[in-house]
Design a protein around this nucleic acid. Sequence first.
DNA 1: GCGACAG
DNA 2: ATCTTGTCGC
Length: 243
Amino acid sequence: MNTPPFPTPPDLAAARALQEELVARVELAGDWSGVRRLAALDASIRRGGALVAAAVLWDVAAGRALEVGFARVPPEAVFPYVPGYLSFREAPVYLAALEALGRAPDALLVDGQGIAHPRGLGIATHLGVHTRLPSVGVAKSRLFGEPAGPLEEDAGAAVPLCAASAALGVPCPKGVQVGWVARTRARVKPLYVSPGHRVGMRAALEVVLALPRPTKLPEPLRQAHLWAGRAHREGLEGRLVFG
DNA sequence: GCGACAG
DNA sequence: ATCTTGTCGC
């Protein structure tokens, strides 16, 4: 029998201690202006199956994908999903997918929370601090914080996501702002956007709203989602470079 | 004790 | 996240 890569049950106390240590290194400032190529990260996992990730290298100026890198972690090596500890499950395979790319990105767009997390260290923030790259978190549902008010139904509408107390954030009428609830498509369930690392609160929202989005999800993330699922079903490995 | 809970 | 049938709309 092989030794599991993590304690069983997982050592959440140690994981929490690491989060509390890393949060001190988070930089909540930056405008993303120097970002030419970003990597969008998403993963796919099926019951009892491997965890497969796709990293889409996106050319911001050209508005298209340059390449996609894949990586997988076998079932027995996958850390369990525990709310608040997602990075311990998915960050390893994301880092491997980034290694599969032919060129390094200068920023990350991650499917999950940035600082909108109980301890300020959502997966986008954890990956940003680990790689030292600017990062933004884009989640499809809420983990931490409450909308500061009602959200308009039109595309582009946004309201601050606030908490009475938080490890990181900026001043908010009712406490600390940890992110935004943003409606990227009219009358469609909103996204939860938050700064990851080396990006300011306002810039995090602008980054997401500036990206092309045929659907409610920014195009780079939508492609990462599609590729992760396809890689899972077809066993894709390594990387693909687009013409 | 009870409800909430990224993917 | 995944599972899973039908249904609505371009």
